[in-house]
Write a protein that binds this DNA or RNA. Structure first.
Lengths: 191, 191
DNA sequence: CTCATTTCTTTACATATGTAAATGCATGCG
DNA sequence: CGCATGCATTTACATATGTAAAGAAATGAG
């Protein structure tokens, strides 16, 4: 149902009928199987998508092959490498489906075209950018100031039930610790 | 010279004469003495400013009184608690002058008024939000993936000469390590 | 210039957490 | 059913880094 997409944008900020119908024309339905990538490292991002069902991780891989799960996107949400789309640089943070996903995707250039001279869409984009900024800032402060146990407890509140849907080692990577350490924390809590 | 402010915005994204003159009307000159706050924790942010000369730190304090220097702003730059301004929530990340500073400040509501229905200013705001997002994301990835020594070397490139202007313990806090550990790193490099 | 204050470095020690490897457990396929 | 695979946990050990305290160096005020 494209209704979910419409509702999501309209919920971010109320939009006119005209803009809602313009927007709905550029999105098409697609699916991602568990393990499939929405975007890889090194590509130039071209698409944005609305995640209708499922879970996607955004992760970074360093030169030693070590991974860091930067963000989980849990439906309903917007996916796509925002950094690559706006900077026009090669993507550094890949996005991969952790469960089967249903998405509505759109070429980003079409969104850019729509916002050319359109105050309302420009405003929607500004607010989406601001929301990304706010959630990034929140995670950064958590990573800097809180113990892994506290971050674990925040994750549980923020993504209820996610632990049942994805492996522990992805959670550990999100928290910035080893699976061993997460196991110790869980052990301590269960004590 | 307000010219620096004009040039800074115009350099972010080319603006019309009309918008430039509208913008310049809302900014007034001010100074911050070393140690003074531009905004404190717990306040509602009301102002944004262009930092013409000097260095400002944005820092977070946790419940134990421990500080984390999230960002350094080195002129020319924009300061102000962007998170509080856009979320309308109490500020969590204070901003304090680390040297004497010259600034041009403006009430944020006036910027918001100017962007009401104004595509060009809305677009400038979107791009500023995107730039904040990009630099936040960069720092987050660095913190997660790199050793403190590597982060130290990036800091030196990004803020040339900053080590001569502010105490080492502020640098350590920015890197997310203790002054002791920073001293060990410097010792190792100088070896 | 001199003294007081602040900052930086160094040392000793405690501790958190990573790595590697072994074990146990569950899931699903042939 | 029974084996193979992937995942979680546990242990032992190594190491990075924090804390606290002391001393050295730099800075600034009078």
């Amino acid at each position: 149902m494209m209704n979910n997409l419409i509702a999501f944008f309209n919920n971010t900020i109320p939009l006119s009928e005209k803009v809602l119908s313009l927007m709905s024309e550029v999105f098409v339905f697609d699916e991602l199987k568990k393990g499939e990538y929405f975007i890889r490292k090194g590509q130039f991002a071209k698409e944005i998508a609305f995640l209708e069902t499922g879970i996607v991780r955004a992760f970074y891989v360093n030169s030693d092959g070590k991974e860091y799960n930067k963000t989980f996107f849990s439906a309903p949400s917007i996916i796509g490498s925002y950094a690559s789309l706006i900077s026009k640089q090669k993507n550094t943070v890949a996005q991969q489906a952790l469960t089967n996903c249903q998405i509505w995707k759109a070429p980003f250039y079409k969104i850019e075209e729509l916002s050319e001279g359109n105050y309302e869409i420009e405003r929607l984009r500004r607010i989406i950018a601001e929301n990304y900024f706010l959630s990034n800032e929140k995670k950064e402060i958590e990573m800097a100031m809180l113990d892994a146990d506290e971050r674990y407890s925040i994750l549980q509140k923020e993504y209820p039930g996610i632990e049942l849907k994805i492996p522990q080692y992805h959670i550990a990577s999100y928290l910035g610790i080893s699976p061993t350490q997460l196991s110790r924390i869980r052990n301590k809590i269960a004590r």
